[in-house]
């Protein structure tokens, strides 16, 4: 019930100072101040400056020179830009959903108490702890054509395995496959969601229908949609920035034959091999806009498919 006009006494009685809340408010701002400064210094200002650099010719040494949209035009006609954008899009479009589905499946499998539950959880989580560099190197060894153990095993089974990371046709798909290995965080986030479902809700669903898939589709999945949203957004943002695995496996040229050339690698190459800061910044702004649009789209559609309890945060 909004008060449109204050009652008459308001004019007579002076409004009191807001003391109690002011102390708390002052403390609130003070406690947040370092971070507010940090955000300004390390996020807000650089964001603006990136857009500026993107419109200059700038080789680190010397002053930036204003060139307008030239960098974007250069990008438009740069085959490496398009190739890497394509690779990255394919990578993100396949890796993220597949990873979420597997993680959800694992979480559903994990969501029961057995003597080995703790062990399984630990096993699924371990790949996250493996430094990406180390993990990639190990996979390069495992998937070595001919002499690597995976191919030896597959050949022994009478199959004709591909050359994995050395085959231009298979390399990107192999990279996607490898990206599925560290899915422990996603799995445990899902598991957390599953275990947050109140026991009585779950039991009520059991009473309503004896079929397990009924409960999964109508009760369980809707209740963990917030976790799906979380994993989806984070997953997309991170997969667009895939860098470490790509550069360890494909170097700065995306060997073999630019099959593993990722957007971030091209950006890195432009900035720190060719010292073309303007072009790199232009690439960064393109990434920013794409990620921004995607995130907004997801959040926009989220209203219709994410279930929120109470509606806070």
């Amino acid at each position: 019930m909004p008060i449109t006009s204050a009652p008459p006494e308001a004019a007579v009685l002076p409004r009191r100072n807001r003391k109690a809340q002011r102390g708390e408010a002052r403390a609130g701002v003070l406690f947040a101040l370092p971070w507010i400064i940090g955000m300004t210094l390390f996020v807000a200002i650089p964001l603006v400056v990136t857009f500026y650099i993107a419109q200059t010719k700038f080789q680190i040494i010397g002053a930036p020179k204003w060139v307008g949209m030239q960098n974007y035009e250069a990008l438009w006609s740069d085959p490496a830009f398009w190739k890497s954008a394509q690779n990255t899009l394919i990578f993100a479009a396949i890796s993220v959903p597949v990873k979420l589905i597997i993680a959800l499946g694992l979480a559903l499998l994990l969501n029961r108490a057995t003597a080995l539950s703790g062990f399984y959880r630990t096993v699924f989580y371990l790949p996250f702890l493996m430094p990406a560099v180390a993990g990639s190197v190990v996979f390069m060894l495992l998937l070595t054509p001919n002499a690597g153990p995976v191919n030896i095993a597959l050949e022994a089974m009478g199959l004709n395995p591909p050359d994995w990371l050395l085959d231009p046709k298979a390399a990107l798909w192999t990279l996607i496959l490898l990206s599925l290995w560290p899915l422990g965080v996603e799995t445990l986030v899902f598991l957390g969601g599953l275990q947050n479902i109140p026991k009585d809700v779950s039991e009520a669903a059991d009473l309503d229908s004896p079929k397990r898939w009924h409960k999964l589709v109508w009760i369980t999945l809707p209740l963990i949609t917030p976790m799906v949203l979380f994993n989806l957004v984070i997953g997309i943002i991170y997969s667009f920035q895939v860098f470490t695995q790509a550069i360890v496996i494909g170097g700065t040229t995306g060997t073999p034959a630019e099959a593993t050339l990722m957007y971030m690698v091209v950006l890195y190459r432009a900035a720190f091999r060719y010292f073309n800061m303007g072009l790199a910044a232009a690439m960064a702004t393109v990434l920013f806009v794409v990620v921004l649009i995607l995130t907004l789209l997801i959040f926009k559609t989220a209203r219709s498919w994410v279930h929120y309890e109470g509606g806070e945060t």
Partner: peptide, 23 residues
């Protein structure tokens, strides 16, 4: 108690105006 602000009016405790005193 002084944990919420009084927007208008007066709070007195033991004949002292504490409307704006800390808790």
């Amino acid at each position: 108690a002084g944990l919420e602000d009084v927007d208008y009016g007066r709070v007195e405790i033991a004949s002292k105006d504490v409307t704006e005193a800390p808790p």
